[in-house]
Design a binder for these strands. Structure first.
Length: 565
RNA sequence: GGGCGUGUGGCCAAGACUGGACUACGGCGACAGCCUUCUAAGCUGUACAUCGGGGGUUCGAAUCCCCCCACGCCCGCCA
């Protein structure tokens, strides 16, 4: 609802500015502690006398819609919500329930995230990708987009070659272990063998070549290895609450139909590119693209001299294939993919294909340095989830001694996945993270348990009262705390819109925290169950509305809104 | 060496794209309080920052520009 107010304010300011002969001046709206929204536009009108400009501008804005008033205050124009906004916001929340905060239908989006190499378990770096990707998928869905979420499996790369090579040396995945952990052991061991005897790298290249040349035996072996690892990875993703609609293998764009692919797509796009002026044919049979015209100094190599394709070539085919479904694509990628993303964008543009949006996030490093699956220096996502869950269990057992073990377990699970997700989602993606166990296991404020707890408090009041009232008088809700809370509740759509348009889920995470704070302050200051008749019903309705908005926000962040904890 | 990103109180971190009420949102930690009223995983208060350093643009800079420093990532016929 607040989004509507914001848009109306923007529109009215534009018209007023136009009327004053300044159509080029931006409305410059901002959230303000002094008003429901404020405009700084007067600074642009006449920098010498902004106060004068603010007065003139304010006069040009007439109450109407959700606009209550426009008051000049120094150089600012302070905008207030119409009194009717508050009761209507409350009714809208109660009426729309789980749908509140959703935006009108928007185009289909294909979103690719996580897509970790199937050579080991997800580590805490992949976890950032998964949380960012899954949260963004949820945000986009609430913003009206149908979303098809893809996991793009890199099954044709060097890493997989080394893994299959290791298996052929007789290394066996330990059946007692989680499949992705077992695969990691083989992969690490295979790399040790290869480092000890670098001459055998040629054998890995040979396997890759035979896989790409569609040797059915190799196709079986690669598939078996990849699927084993993927089973484990998907267990972890499921535990996180992150679901993919579709798993797309790279080899799909290389192998023929009888081997599970749709054949030739990569060859086709490569052949099209090879006739473009930017193509550079090596005398050895390799093919690369010169992208200096796009401001990219580094050539993009598509074909090795042995004729096999590189990741970039297959990725181009994948993007062309996606474009048949929708031009709106989003890729969630680690910062190490920046160059690749820029090269992809340049080539797709030259092919007149849709260019994907990217959400690029910086690395998660350990205090002792960066993680590597090959070297075995990583903290797995499972390990983190396990430890956080143990700590959550310890705390809930301590706090709720009267409850049974099943309750403790349920709460600990929800708290743990929520805590891990929130911790990853709340930091802006361009910041690097140095992982810290102490911080990961800290459940104070600014963390998911705080958000879940606020929701549980609302549920508790409703439980004790026997539910929300059918009838109530919103006019009873005129206190400062109540109005502030309603306003905050109404802002969900504004933050969904902002997060979705900027591909920045942390904006919503930030809102969630502010919403929970506002509710907790209301909880402290405003008695509900003990309020006089009439007031009590109205406040109960407000608690129910709070419960709904908290639940919707948490759901969008992938955090389970427990009714009790 | 070049490119991209980051640098905000002891620690974590919002604000930076759209310069302006910033007297910089919060959290952790510290200190002092609040459970005879709806779950204290909560709430209140105090102390602690001039926003890496320097220069510039501007009436006005955490925010824009330039230089420098530190850290991360990339600069593979890896993905």
């Amino acid at each position: 609802m607040f989004l509507q107010f914001h848009r109306q304010a923007e529109e009215m300011l534009r018209e007023a500015l136009q009327g004053l002969g300044h159509p080029q001046v931006s409305p410059s709206l901002e959230m303000s502690p002094h008003a429901d929204l404020a405009s700084r536009a007067a600074f642009r009108l006449d920098p010498k006398n902004p106060a004068q400009g603010a007065q003139t501008l304010a006069r040009g804005i007439k109450p109407g819609g959700w606009m209550g008033s426009a008051e000049p205050r120094g150089p600012y124009v302070n905008l207030s919500l119409a009194p009717g906004f508050y009761p209507e916001a409350l009714r809208a929340i109660l009426r729309e329930g789980p749908r509140f905060g959703s935006l009108p239908p928007a185009p289909l989006v294909i979103l690719e995230h996580t897509s970790a190499n199937p050579d080991g378990p997800l580590h805490i770096g992949h976890l950032r990708n998964a949380v960012l990707g899954d949260t963004l998928a949820r945000v986009l869905r609430r913003a009206g987009h149908p979303v098809e979420v893809h996991y793009y499996v890199n099954d044709m790369g060097r890493q997989m070659g080394a893994l299959v090579w290791g298996l052929r040396q007789g290394l066996k995945p330990d059946p007692q272990k989680k499949p992705d952990d077992a695969i990691a052991e083989v992969y690490i061991q295979a790399n040790r063998l290869l480092e000890a005897d670098p001459g055998r790298q040629a054998e890995v290249r040979g396997l890759l070549l035979r896989y790409e040349r569609q040797d059915p035996q190799l196709v079986r072996e690669f598939r078996e290895a990849v699927e084993t690892c993927l089973r484990g990875i998907h267990q972890t993703l499921k535990r996180l609450g992150a679901a993919h609609d579709r798993v797309v293998w790279e080899s799909h764009f290389v192998l023929p139909p009888e081997l599970g692919g749709q054949g030739g797509k990569t060859a086709e796009i490569v052949s099209r590119l090879s006739s473009m002026p930017i193509a550079r044919q090596g005398s050895d049979g390799s093919l690369s693209l010169d992208l200096t015209g796009d401001g990219i100094k580094k050539e993009m190599v598509l074909i090795r001299s042995d004729g096999t394709t590189l990741y970039g070539a297959r990725d181009l085919a994948y993007h062309e294939w996606k474009a048949q479904t929708t031009p709106h694509q989003v890729n969630v990628l680690g910062a190490d993919h920046k160059l690749h993303a820029a090269q992809m964008a340049a080539v797709l543009r030259r092919l007149h294909l849709p260019v994907p949006e990217t959400l690029i996030f910086e690395f998660v490093n350990l205090p002792e340095g960066s993680m590597s699956t090959r070297a075995g220096t990583y903290i797995s996502a499972d390990d983190l989830l396990d430890k956080v869950e143990m700590e959550a269990l310890r705390q809930v057992q301590q706090r709720r001694t009267e409850m049974d073990p099943g309750f403790h377990r349920r709460v600990a699970r929800a708290v743990a996945t929520g805590a891990v997700r929130y911790e990853m989602a709340r930091v802006s993606p361009e910041k690097g993270i140095t992982f810290d166990w102490k911080q990961a296991l800290d459940f104070e404020k600014q963390s998911a348990p705080f958000l879940i707890y606020s929701h549980a408090r609302a549920c508790s009041i409703l439980h004790k009262s026997g539910g929300a009232p059918a009838e109530f008088d919103p006019a009873k809700l005129t206190g400062e705390r109540e109005r502030r809370l309603i306003k905050k509740l109404s802002m969900l759509d504004y933050w969904i819109d902002a997060s979705a348009r900027q591909y920045r889920p942390h904006l919503l995470a930030h809102y969630a925290k502010e919403l929970a704070e506002e509710f907790n302050q209301f909880y402290r200051d405003v008695p509900v169950l003990q309020a006089p008749p009439g007031t009590r019903e109205a406040r109960l309705a407000l608690v129910e509305a709070s419960r709904i908005v908290l639940a919707n926000t948490l759901e969008t962040l992938g955090i389970e809104p427990l009714a009790e904890m």
